[in-house]
């Protein structure tokens, strides 16, 4: 899952972006806030750094798996038998 690189604004940098005196918002923060609301999960300010840290690692794992090409016909490991 590709994410935009965070824009960093160095204090005193000569060519700092005009509009962003604060760092650009990380889309993952927005995702966590939206998912917390949608799933009714209590992600408080206290929990947020830990949740984000774990989600970053988990999504990195997801991108490792996603980078491996598999045919459309590939079956998932658990197969339901009626």
């Amino acid at each position: 899952m590709a994410r935009k690189t965070k824009t960093k604004t160095k204090p005193g940098a000569k060519h700092a972006p005009v509009k962003s005196k604060t760092p650009a918002a990380d889309p993952l923060d927005a995702y966590i806030a939206a998912a917390a609301k949608a799933f009714d999960l209590p992600v408080t300010a206290q929990y947020r750094p830990g949740v984000k840290m774990n989600l970053v690692v988990t999504l990195r794992m997801a991108s490792i798996v996603a980078a491996f090409p598999l045919p459309d016909e590939a079956e998932p490991a658990p197969v339901f038998r009626a």
Binding site: M1, A35, L55, A62, V65
Partner: peptide, 13 residues
């Protein structure tokens, strides 16, 4: 925190 993050993983992954 690990479990909350896990609950937010997309099904596609």
């Amino acid at each position: 925190d690990r479990l909350i993050a896990g609950a937010m993983v997309p099904a596609s992954a």
